[in-house]
Computed example of a mutant assay.
Amino acid sequence: MTQVYLNGRFINQQDAMVSVMDRGFMFADGAYEVIPAFYRVPFRIDQHLARLDFSLSSIRIENPLTHEQWRGVFDQLLAENAGEHQSIYLQVTRGVAADRNHLWPKGLVPTVLVMTSPLKMRLDESLSDIQGITAMTTEDLRWKRCDIKAIALLPNVLHRQRAEEAGADEAILINEQGQVTEGSSSNVFIVKGNEIATPPKTMPILGGITRDLVIELLQAGTQYKLSERMLLQSELRNADEVWITSSTKEICPVTMLDSQPVGNGNVGPVWHDIAARYQQYKLQLAADYRKNPPI
């Protein structure tokens, strides 16, 4: 039976219930994180918890748990639930109010939910079987504080649904200035010649944990020029390679954009290089986990 953590208790998922007056239900008033775990050990947990701190402070919710307490919750769920590799979902809302009112009353106790699910994840350096995905561009309809990982995801849902109905795997969002922001649930990179470019972390863009790791790997010593700058839609269309990144998608090559091939229509050599470095990073961590399991 799958276990979840809800407001201080570990219970069966089917028994987990929250009040209809929870402000997360009424107003999408809360924040969340998604954290991959390899061999039941959370990946880049410090970075995820730091981003959670930022999101909660930005919407004026005090973090209800310390980092040590979050780790303890994750460890117990990962140990009890099925899957050597799992995805952790955590959500914190402002809590349950007595009535529906845009103003929040003082003294609310945040609602805390953590659950996990099995995660299909590559942990080897063989990338020859990777096929590119398709993407479409669409107008960015989201709010101006996308740097907050808020649970109010209706625009993202609509973008992703539109892509699905158009036969695409992801929607890449374009703002009113004709600039690339990000995907419906991912960050965006392009390759042109020797340059790898991605939009900078500003308020319209979520600071992706995988995005940051890709940048770390590029800065660790590669032959490529890294640029964090705004990208025009025309640059996206004319790129040699396009990638999207996220904690669950990792680094995913886009080979078709708006029904047109990206570059030559194949998974590109720069992607193969950086994706291999990413896999090597994970494999080294996995080896360290097996050699010295966290206590």
Rank of each mutant, 00 (worst) to 15 (best):
residue 3 Q to K: 15
residue 4 V to F: 01
residue 14 Q to M: 12
residue 14 Q to N: 14
residue 16 A to D: 03
residue 17 M to R: 15
residue 21 M to T: 13
residue 23 R to T: 15
residue 24 G to V: 05
residue 29 D to Q: 11
residue 30 G to L: 00
residue 30 G to V: 02
residue 32 Y to D: 07
residue 32 Y to T: 07
residue 32 Y to L: 11
residue 34 V to A: 12
residue 40 R to C: 10
residue 44 R to F: 09
residue 47 Q to D: 12
residue 48 H to L: 10
residue 49 L to K: 05
residue 50 A to P: 06
residue 51 R to K: 11
residue 53 D to F: 04
residue 53 D to P: 09
residue 56 L to I: 05
residue 56 L to H: 07
residue 57 S to G: 10
residue 60 R to Y: 13
residue 66 T to V: 02
residue 66 T to L: 04
residue 68 E to S: 14
residue 69 Q to T: 08
residue 72 G to E: 15
residue 73 V to P: 10
residue 73 V to A: 12
residue 74 F to T: 01
residue 75 D to A: 15
residue 76 Q to L: 10
residue 78 L to F: 05
residue 80 E to I: 11
residue 91 Q to R: 04
residue 92 V to S: 09
residue 99 D to L: 12
residue 101 N to P: 06
residue 103 L to G: 11
residue 106 K to E: 15
residue 108 L to E: 13
residue 108 L to R: 12
residue 112 V to L: 13
residue 114 V to F: 08
residue 116 T to M: 04
residue 118 P to R: 13
residue 119 L to M: 12
residue 120 K to P: 06
residue 125 E to V: 12
residue 130 I to G: 08
residue 132 G to C: 05
residue 135 A to M: 10
residue 136 M to F: 01
residue 138 T to E: 13
residue 140 D to G: 04
residue 146 C to L: 07
residue 148 I to Q: 13
residue 155 P to R: 02
residue 157 V to E: 05
residue 160 R to S: 11
residue 161 Q to T: 14
residue 161 Q to I: 09
residue 161 Q to N: 11
residue 165 E to F: 10
residue 167 G to I: 05
residue 172 I to R: 00
residue 173 L to K: 04
residue 174 I to C: 07
residue 175 N to E: 10
residue 178 G to K: 03
residue 178 G to R: 07
residue 178 G to V: 03
residue 179 Q to I: 00
residue 182 E to D: 02
residue 184 S to Q: 02
residue 185 S to G: 15
residue 190 I to N: 00
residue 190 I to S: 02
residue 191 V to F: 07
residue 196 I to T: 00
residue 196 I to K: 00
residue 197 A to I: 02
residue 203 M to E: 15
residue 206 L to H: 02
residue 206 L to E: 02
residue 209 I to D: 00
residue 209 I to K: 02
residue 216 E to A: 13
residue 217 L to I: 02
residue 220 A to V: 08
residue 222 T to P: 06
residue 223 Q to D: 15
residue 228 E to L: 03
residue 229 R to S: 00
residue 233 Q to L: 04
residue 234 S to Q: 12
residue 237 R to D: 10
residue 237 R to W: 12
residue 238 N to L: 13
residue 241 E to M: 03
residue 242 V to W: 11
residue 243 W to I: 02
residue 244 I to G: 02
residue 247 S to H: 00
residue 247 S to C: 03
residue 250 E to A: 01
residue 252 C to E: 11
residue 252 C to V: 09
residue 253 P to E: 01
residue 253 P to K: 00
residue 256 M to H: 13
residue 258 D to S: 04
residue 259 S to K: 13
residue 260 Q to N: 12
residue 265 G to W: 10
residue 268 G to S: 06
residue 272 H to W: 11
residue 273 D to N: 04
residue 276 A to P: 07
residue 277 R to N: 02
residue 277 R to F: 01
residue 280 Q to M: 06
residue 285 L to V: 04
residue 285 L to H: 09
residue 288 D to G: 14
residue 294 P to H: 12
